[in-house]
Design a binder for these strands. Structure first.
Length: 417
RNA sequence: GGGGGAGUGUCCCGAGUGGCAAAGGGGGCGGACUGUAAAUCCGCUGGCUUACGCCUUCGUAGGUUCGAGUCCUACCUCCCCCA
């Protein structure tokens, strides 16, 4: 790792964010001497962000913490076209209303990490629809298109790989890098934004933006890409059986969010602590030095700190306490995720199969049956052996709930109302 | 434009003689072992049904047949060769 003079690059480098930087010395000097503006582009195809976006958000966070000005760019315009990089399906075209709705949900998440406003280092939320929607094709070709050499575009890895493997590359997709390059220049003109950050797969696109900026505006722009995070076992991050790890408490409870981090693989703990918590590096070094089962302590810290960032300290502490009671004491923690059902349903009896489907622990009664055959379902900590079992008011614990478990880790309380 | 090939279980890859809810992987879920880890081993991996069974699924739409993933026709998409 090289040593930087600016706090911004120093922190990113020492915490393991950086994959590549263009002209690191010039950027370092710039970040040392003045406030710079940098942006990251985000998809707004969903109503909320999931864990995959957490890494770029953290980069914006550190940017602002070190005195600089972050821009979160929503791909409102590019979303209208549909991102071609996802191979098949998902190129659904979203209406402006849906996009606006998604922007609202996503904005709420950014507000937890960034301070927005009009001050010199206050964050800005931008939407590329503001300039892409009104683009005129002929003008765009003449002003922007003439700066792009097809010869050179063909040499970019992203394109070359596709051509080498003789895979289809649509013209739309070929143009995507031009639009993204144009975003960078537009943000330079509007906001004096000189740095674009992104995932390592964005390097080529960002470089194109830098070139375009030099040709059109004689500007010196910079690129910084983050390492692609996978787990030690090579899996993509952020997907579990339950689905995506959302950052929105309505889509994934803080308790389940905490559990996700608690179950981090050993080999990932140190890396994740640096990337996803604000703990000082020496503290992280101490935690990462723990061996064997002691590493579980580090995982708890990771879970609590990351949950605190996303959902607040109180929710994080409660999730930690709920887990402690459930896993370490084997006690019934009343703060486990809870589902309310009308009392009348229990009075007339509710089949276990239906109960599990109702609480979304399984997707069908058939799956519930299979889980029973595999000994995977427990009601009030007793393994279910009879698929015809019925839950009634008699099954309520002294706390007035019924605890339904799937496997050893997933528990939901059923509560009559 | 001409010739050849391909699209399979709605996560992915992939076998498939007219009797098929369809081989095998990967992934995922559950169990055992552990440390709420990894690795390993075992089970499960369309929906409904207590069950006999019923329904939906092999690019799309028709057709042949007692019966179609499999045969025929048209169409869609992709790939290769020739122009």
């Amino acid at each position: 790792m090289r040593a930087y003079k600016s706090d911004f690059l120093n922190i990113l480098a020492s915490r393991g964010f950086i994959h590549q930087v263009s002209e690191p010395d010039a950027l370092d000097a710039l970040a040392k001497s003045k406030t710079i503006t940098a942006y990251i582009g985000f998809d707004c195809t969903a109503a909320s962000l999931h864990i995959g976006s957490l890494l770029p958000i953290m980069m914006l966070y550190w940017l602002q913490q070190t005195g600089h000005r972050p821009i979160a760019l929503m791909g409102g315009g590019t979303t209208r076209v549909g991102d071609p990089s996802g191979k098949d399906e998902s190129r659904k075209v979203l209406t402006d209303e849906v996009i606006a709705e998604n922007l609202k949900g996503i904005g709420a998440i950014f507000a937890k990490f960034l301070k927005f406003g009009a001050g010199p280092s206050d964050a800005v939320m931008a939407n590329n629809a503001d300039w892409l929607n009104s683009l005129n094709y002929i003008d765009f070709l003449r002003d922007v298109g003439r700066h792009f050499s097809v010869n050179r575009m063909l040499a970019f890895d992203s394109v070359k790989m596709r051509l080498d493997r003789q895979q289809e590359l649509s013209f739309l997709e070929f143009n995507y890098m031009i639009l993204q390059a144009y975003d960078f220049v537009e943000l330079y003109k509007r906001e004096k934004c000189v740095l674009q950050m992104g995932g390592s797969d964005q390097w080529g696109n960002i470089i194109n933006g830098i070139d375009l900026g030099r040709r059109m505006e004689s500007a010196q722009l910079f690129a910084l890409t983050a390492t692609l995070i996978t787990t030690s076992s090579g899996a993509k991050m952020g997907k579990t059986a339950a689905g995506a790890i959302w950052l929105d408490a309505n889509l994934l409870s803080p308790y389940d969010f905490w559990q996700f981090w608690r179950n981090t693989e050993d080999g990932d703990v140190a890396r994740f602590l640096k990337l996803f918590t604000l703990l000082p590096l020496d503290e992280i070094g101490r935690l990462a030095a723990l061996k064997g089962a002691e590493l579980n302590e580090a995982k708890k810290v990771l879970a609590t700190e990351t949950t605190a960032l996303v959902h607040g300290r109180a929710a994080a502490d409660q999730a930690a306490e709920t887990a402690r009671k459930t896993f370490e004491e084997g006690a019934l923690a009343e703060t486990l995720p809870t589902a309310n059902v009308p009392r009348s349903i229990l009075e007339s009896g509710l089949s276990v199969l239906e109960a599990y489907v109702l609480l979304h622990l399984v997707v069908s009664k058939g799956e519930a049956r299979r889980q029973i055959n595999n000994g995977g379902l427990k009601v009030n900590d007793a393994t279910v052996t009879d698929e015809k079992m019925t839950l009634t008011l008699k099954d309520l614990t002294p706390e007035g709930v019924i605890k339904l478990s799937l496997g050893k880790k997933r528990h939901v309380l059923l509560k009559p109302i």
